[in-house]
């Protein structure tokens, strides 16, 4: 009975593989235990453990792949994994061994550049990783570091730049030169939406002052228009 139920759940949650068995969970718990580094916190893997874990499944700790892993295990902070997140995350994907996880990640990283949905999931979870503790906003410096990674890495599905406009670079330049405030969740989420739309329509005709963008986006649009206007004038003078 119990197995049947899990099987049904597995089916409905989109998994085409066999049902999650108690064996899977046991395996995953065993793997998790292997990387625990603080005896005082039995259900947590810290930074050191996480790093060696990533290394073991062959994921570059400095690329989006690492963020993807943290999304799968719903890491509450950078380099931190919980037992519950680890077991639930991987068992939903039916990867109960390091080899399976390694294979999954290899495949994910390969397909990430063309999978906007997966990328978007990773992007959204990154906000959780980037903020510290119970704070509601991410310091600007941290946010821009993640944006640079997320918008310029070869693995990214939203490479935010074009032949005419180095969008991501301008975004960071604008934020550090005139915005200068921390980044809240709404701004984080809306930035991805804006990035995607601006790539589709570089003239930004989708934007107008009345629309619901956060004011930071409004100000950025203004900034971009100025910058482009200056550029045009310079081009003419040359």
């Amino acid at each position: 009975n119990w197995n049947q139920e899990v099987a049904v759940n597995g089916y409905f949650s989109g998994g085409s593989g066999p049902a999650v068995s108690s064996g899977t969970k046991a395996n995953l718990n065993k793997i998790f235990d292997k990387y625990r580094d603080d005896p005082g916190a039995p259900d947590t893997v810290g930074v050191t453990g996480s790093m060696s874990y990533l290394k073991d499944i062959n994921v570059d700790i400095e690329d989006i792949g690492a963020l993807a892993v943290f999304e799968i295990v719903q890491a509450p902070a950078m380099g931190e994994m919980t037992r519950e997140g680890f077991v639930d995350g991987w068992s939903a994907l039916n990867c109960d061994s390091l080899d399976k996880q390694k294979a999954h990640m290899r495949n994910l990283v390969k397909t990430l550049p063309s999978s906007k949905d997966n990328f978007s999931k990773v992007y959204k979870h990154t906000f959780q990783i980037a903020k510290t503790g119970n704070q509601k906003a991410v310091p600007l410096e941290t946010a821009t570091a993640y944006w640079e990674l997320l918008f310029t890495s070869p693995t990214s599905a939203v490479k935010w730049s074009s032949s005419s406009t180095p969008w991501a670079q301008w975004w960071v330049e604008f934020l550090t030169s005139s915005w200068k405030k921390s980044v809240n969740k709404d701004m984080w989420v809306q930035t991805l939406k804006f990035a995607q739309m601006s790539l589709d329509d570089e003239a930004l005709s989708f934007w107008n002052e009345e629309s619901s963008w956060p004011s930071v986006i409004d100000e950025f649009v203004e900034w971009v228009k100025n910058k482009r206007g200056d550029g045009a004038v310079e081009a003419m003078e040359e």
């Binding site: 509601k136 809240n184 709404d186 619901s212 956060p214 004011s215």
Partner: peptide, 8 residues
């Protein structure tokens, strides 16, 4: 801006 604040 006020909407931003209220979202936050």
């Amino acid at each position: 801006k006020c909407i931003d604040i209220l979202l936050e």
